[in-house]
Structures are given as C-alpha cells and as structure tokens.
Design a protein around this nucleic acid. Sequence first.
RNA 1: GGUGAGGUGGCUGAGUGGUCGAAAGCAGCGCUUUGCUAAAGCGCCGUACCCCAAAAGGGUACCCAGGGUUCGAAUCCCUGCCUCACCGCCA
Length: 423
Amino acid sequence: MLDIRLIRDKPDFVKSRLATRGGGDESKIDDVLRVDGERRKAETALQQLNADRKRLSKDIGGKRGRGEATQDLEAEVRQIGDQITNLTEEAGKLDERQRDLLLQIPNLPHEAVPIGQDATANRVVRSWGEKPSLTGQVLDHVAIGEALNLFDLERAAKLSGSGFIAFTGRGARLERALINFMLDLHTQEHGYLEMSPPFLVRRDCMIGTTQLPKFEDDMYNLEGNSMFLAPTAEVPVTNFHREEILAAGDLPKKFAAYTPCFRREAGSAGRETRGIIRVHQFDKVELVKLTTTETSWSEWEGLMGDAERVLQLLGLHYRVLELCTGDLGFGSARTCDLEVWSAGQDSYLEVSSCSNFEEFQARRMNLRYKDGEGKNRFVHTINGSGLALPRLFASLIESYQQPDGSVAIPEKLQSYFGADQIR
RNA sequence: GGUGAGGUGGCUGAGUGGUCGAAAGCAGCGCUUUGCUAAAGCGCCGUACCCCAAAAGGGUACCCAGGGUUCGAAUCCCUGCCUCACCGCCA
C-alpha cells in the first residue's frame, strides 16, 4: 500500500511512476485524493463535535455535583450526539473507500527498473554456466519421468484433475532430496532460520502480502472465504511478525521455509502447462527477509545470491532476468527472476522471483521497527523462492539425462538422494 | 465440542459511570549532584490521525474487537475473537 501522504505531496511523481507499469493505475490517484479530501473534512468536523461533547459532558458532571439543573445542557449534548452518529458513519465509509482504493494501487517501480510494456523488455542481467552438451536424443522431463517412473501425471489427474502431480518412488525421493539440500544450505551456510508455517492463512495475511484483493480468483479459499490455502510460503512467513514493532538490532530477519503452494492458475490453461511446469499444488522452499530501509537493497542482492547458489551447486545453467516495469508484480518495487535452462523445451524456465517490496507489504501488515532514533519505520520485505521444486526437478533431470536413458545425480545431491544415478 | 478464568501503555500492575490517556513500580532517555565499575534527585518517556504553509502549538481517537445503554463508558450490557486451565474427542 502506498503512503497517502506521498500521494498528497507528490501526486504527479506517483502518477508518472505508476504510468511506467502501463496498467492505467495512475488514473486512480485523483480518485484517492478526492476521497482523502472528503475524508479529512469529515474527520475534522467530527473531531470538533467530539470536543464539544466532551467539554459539555464534563460541565454536566460539575453542575450535578453542585446540584444545579442540567436539562438544557443534556438536550444540547444529545443533539450533538446525533450529529456525531451521522458523521461517524460518513467518515467511516470514506475511510473504508480510501483504503479500498489504496489496496488496488500497485507499488511504484524502483527507478532502476527498466521501462517497458511487457516481458520483451525484460533484461538479462547475467547468466551462469553453460547449456548442457547432450548427445543423442534429447528428451523432455515428461518423457524421462515416465520412462523412469519418477512421477505419475495420469493417476494424479484421477485423484485431483489435471494440473496435479504425484511423485513416485525415486522421483519422490529426489524431490525430497532437493528440499532437504536447499533447507540445509540456507540454514547452515546462509544464516536463515528454518520455519515450517501453517499452510492455511487468514484473509488479512493474503491482503498483507498483496495476493488480495486483486487476485482472489487465483487463490483457493475455504471456510466461507475466510481461510485461504497459501499460494506461497511468502504469505505465512512474511506475515509472521505482522502488527509488531521490531527492534532495528533484530533486523534483518531471514527465514527459509518449505511449504506446498496452492494456485488455481485461473486463465492460464494451455500456457506452459506441459508436464509439471505449471501445477495447482507444488512444493517450494521460500526465502524471506525483513530488513531496515538502509539495508534492503543489499539484502535483496544477497537473497538472490543465496538462491543462485543452489543452482550453482547443482551445476545447472541459469540466467538472471530483470523484470521491466510492465512485467513487475503488483507489490514489487523491483524483481529479478532466476531462470534455469530446460533442455527438453529448449528454453529458459522461471524457478524463482526475487522481489523487494520496500514498505509496500509492511504498510498493509502494519509491520514496523524502531530505528536508532526511536522512530517507528516500516520494515522492508524481500522474498524469493529458493526454489520452485517441480521446475527445478524438470531442469535437473533434463540437464543430467544420459544417452543410455539414465539420469546422473549431481555430486552435492548424492548424499541426500542416496545414489549417484537413476536408471 | 463442553465448563471455568481472563484480555489495561515495552513489561508488571491499579483502576466498577464524570478533570482517566489512564496510579504506582520496572525498563528506557535527558539533566544535576556525588563520584572507582554505581547510587540519589529532578524531568521526559505510547500510537494513529486531524488542524496549521511549516515549526511551535492545538485537537480527536485508541484500556482485545464490534455493537448497545447513557448527557457522559477502561468501568454497565450483548456478540465475536484470542489466551490460559480442566474435561471430552482425535492423528
């Protein structure tokens, strides 16, 4: 959520930054300002009435103590009370309307974000490793997985419909090995605190991390819409300290969490849906940082490096893509995607989005910290997956497929997997 | 699911209808005095929002949340949420 004071003070700046996203959101700024003006007017009038009532009520108390008549005063205060009732309702509605509007406005892109309309303007920042040199027929992950019985898409569909996966046997073991490998790496070498959070979260949490109100159609909800299946561990983990005031000395806080993720993927049928690339439920190890204003950008770089390290240790070729303004997520100020090479698809595959939200999420969560001067400031939130499992899995078995149909296991993973190959 | 107890400022903890935004203590900050790793005294010490061009200053709201009673609610009533304890059920 943007700061209403920033919008009041620099409306043109806010509009021009929003305009770079190309979503037309800048038109909402005038609406917000109009409602804000009305709201403040109502609030000021209301406060005057409250002050009057307070003063007169005390007079009544005093007069009664002296045995004086108070009927006239009481009638006056009663009348003020009626006005207060009406104005309170009006002010409340305006306040709610302002909040609704603010929740619909995306974050301002950071000035370093390349300007562009869509994904074609995204910029490759760097790449690591080389595409694997595969000899013989190159299979995609579906063919490999089916040949080696690593997962069963047909039977998973029998259970839950299309878009679900069941890992089986060595496939399940490999997935688990990847999860354990990542968690151990992030907690033991990168200093993250492991967390195993609830997967079901309240509506307020979904608002806090910007899934709601805009993207409700993509979320699974239960219990009469009051509980949601988390679409990413970002939701429970980032909200963990919501409505708290942290000490600056306790920041940054770094969390690593493995959870399943649940997404309806409404409207994405037919897009990138082959195999296990886009499913309704997938496992992911997520990284979340809560930082101060001063350190958030270096922490963002660091988080990205931590996620990249997984790919490096697994020997997977990847590239880092900086998203342009038009492709940036709703709440993000700046995002880089990590994309691994998919030999089977002969293209890159997103496995992680590393985003810095600056204050945007913290304002929604009311998550603050006390800085060195004792002032309360909003925490900066950063997250990125480290990484989405099915896609990482797909890239891995495609990259390490052997001419004889087996799959080699990277050295770092062997102790977790318990073997050096799958055949 | 049942029964009981309870939710007050960073913490402890007073406060049962009127000058209570809230005693006191602890913690924290500042000053003074004395001065060997400290003590004493004094002062300050919540958050949000609004008014004001801004500062100064002023105001309103907030004692879990939402309603209600009342001229007036931390205080009385109702509902909800949460915490704790015990019982029941259960992986």
